[in-house]
């Protein structure tokens, strides 16, 4: 397998402080075409990190490179190749899914013919045919999430960042979303996802990053994480809890 010349995402010494440090010198590198899961306890800094990558927050210091583009120096070019899907679907109640996708395509200045074809394909792929011309205000949480995902995919991003994309989805909808994401990864797209559903990370992610107190405390494949936590032959949940507990103990002892 040949790797693209630039990583899909490269973070170098990223810092962000609110009342206390939210992200504290985070560095990581994610290859193009990789499915990467970012895990961490509540308040670990996952969403803050991803919001900085998406250009929704400015880091206090550090570097963000997306497919070789310096995202802080040239945010517009970086956004052109990236899509952001937050946990709460960001759609317009008074637009229907087809209109929503037309609007998103307009924002990314897509060719109209391609945009419409892509929109129809995505609508079908995500099982939204029946709702394609129904205003979003009448859609369920799961359907809204799928519309938001379609919006993220329509402009063919090279990097898709998803913050808890499966929250509130039923089993069927979750399966559809996972299938679409896997398909994209198979086609060379990079997916970075935060999730609290560790089974999903365990099954889908090629590599997993564990973040706590704004720092990357472990990273690698599941086997590598098992080795790092010193617990072989166990599932991701045990590995994750073990790693986080170790970090908490260390932080407490330093504070003491």
């Amino acid at each position: 397998m040949t790797h693209a010349p630039f990583p899909a995402l490269h973070l170098d010494g990223l810092h962000k402080r609110f009342d206390k440090p939210a992200v504290d010198g985070l560095s990581l590198s994610i290859r193009q075409g990789e499915f990467y899961a970012l895990l961490g306890p509540n308040g670990a800094g996952k969403t803050t990190t991803l919001r900085m990558v998406a250009g929704l927050l400015k880091p206090d210091s550090g570097r963000i490179s997306i497919c070789g583009i310096d995202a802080l120096a040239d945010p517009i070019e970086a956004k052109r190749v990236m899509a952001w899907v937050p946990d709460e679907p960001m759609i317009y109640d008074k637009l229907d899914p087809m209109e929503y996708l037309e609007f998103v395509a307009g924002l990314w200045a897509m060719d109209t013919t391609i945009a419409e074809r892509q929109a129809r394909e995505l609508i079908t792929m995500l099982g939204l045919d029946q709702q394609a011309t129904t205003r979003c205000q009448g859609l369920s949480k799961g359907m809204r999430q799928k519309v938001a995902l379609a919006g993220a995919l329509i402009h063919d991003p090279k990097l898709i960042i998803l913050d808890e994309p499966l929250t509130g989805l039923d089993a069927a909808a979750a399966r559809q979303v996972k299938a679409v994401l896997k398909d994209r990864v198979a086609n060379g797209v990079t997916v970075i996802m935060t999730t609290h559903i560790l089974e999903v990370a365990e099954r889908m992610a090629e590599r997993i990053g564990v973040i706590a107190n704004g720092r990357l405390i472990a990273e690698g494949t599941l086997d590598e994480l098992r080795a790092q936590s010193g617990k072989t032959d166990t599932n991701l949940e045990d590995v994750f809890l073990n790693l986080v507990a170790d970090t908490e103990r260390l932080t407490s002892s330093i504070a003491a």
Partner: peptide, 9 residues
Amino acid sequence: APELVATAP
């Protein structure tokens, strides 16, 4: 959808 517009190029 402020984040959609904010993350658009």
